[in-house]
């Protein structure tokens, strides 16, 4: 029950959820699932990908200005929402790209319905519990001092981390709304699904796992092991990038992805 509005509309409705979406480019459909915050409509990363594909980059329910029904609050809801969105697109298969929190989502969706996908790209993806019970894999961005989170999130925090003092009130409101939604979906277990690891072997499609070489939220070693659970997945590092290579190194990241897509 997906209602797709004609371009250049920036909303998509899936059942009772109204999603803001960046839609640009032509050609095969590439669905990008964002991490802790949606990318801006003019993000260079999206623009680079849109030269070779139709980019669809929705803000998850509760993020940005996307609505979130009161009882919509789990990964389960998100997975089904995006499965329905994919089914409603009319494409035989689409390319799925997910970063960080959105990488977790992408892995879940791919494990559930890889027949609707032609390629999968995971960027600094969350979602797995790999360490022992006393060794967290994923930096707790909620319970850690913001200065530490900032330092561990970026290769070059002084140039790349957001400057909150320079943000508009609207941008700060969006930021806080994202933060609430992220907490709702990911607070516990913190940013992983204990069952996902078991089912990653179901992903039967070409998969590329990309990782910021300087990621201090989830380390490249976590990424290598993540890739190891997906049959045939390739792993590559993105130099001079932390947890958000789509913001910090959009050109290098897009090059990796476009190569992988066969352009």
């Amino acid at each position: 029950m997906t209602e797709t509005l004609a371009p250049p509309a920036d909303r998509i409705r899936v059942r009772d959820v109204d999603l803001e979406v960046v839609r640009q480019g032509t050609g095969r459909t590439l669905l990008f699932l964002h991490g802790f915050h949606p990318l801006a409509p003019d993000a260079r990363f999206l623009e680079l990908l849109s030269r070779r594909a139709t980019i669809l980059a929705p803000s998850h329910p509760g993020f940005g200005t996307s609505s979130r029904p009161a009882d919509f609050e789990t990964l389960y809801d998100l997975v089904h929402l995006y499965r329905e969105l994919i089914d409603g697109l009319g494409d035989d298969k689409i390319t799925l790209v997910g970063a960080s929190f959105g990488g977790w989502l992408a892995a879940e969706i791919a494990a559930a319905c890889s027949h609707r996908l032609d390629r999968l790209v995971l960027i600094d993806a969350l979602g797995l519990k790999l360490g022992d019970r006393e060794t967290p894999d994923i930096l707790d961005i909620f319970n850690t001092h913001p200065d530490t989170v900032r330092r561990r999130s970026w290769h070059d925090p002084d140039h790349e981390a957001p400057d909150f003092d320079a943000m508009s009130d609207d941008a700060l409101t969006r930021h806080a709304r994202d933060w609430d939604a992220l907490s709702l979906y990911g607070w516990e277990p913190y940013m992983y699904n204990p069952r996902l690891k078991r089912w990653l072997g179901r992903i039967a499609l070409p998969t590329l796992v990309l990782w910021g070489a300087a990621d201090g939220v989830v380390t490249p070693d976590y990424g290598r092991r993540y890739a190891g659970f997906i049959p045939g997945a390739r792993f590559a590092l993105v130099d001079r990038a932390g947890h958000h290579p789509e913001r910090e190194r959009p050109d290098a990241l897009a090059d990796h992805i476009l190569d992988f897509l066969g352009h």
């Binding site: 909620f142 913001p146 700060l172 806080a176």
Partner: peptide
């Protein structure tokens, strides 16, 4: 510490909570 206080999710409406991110 700020992560337990003004930056904690869900403790104020976003239009107020967002301002807490300013340094």
């Amino acid at each position: 510490a700020p992560q337990y206080a003004q930056l904690l999710p869900g403790t104020a409406p976003p239009h107020i909570a967002g301002q807490a991110w300013r340094t």
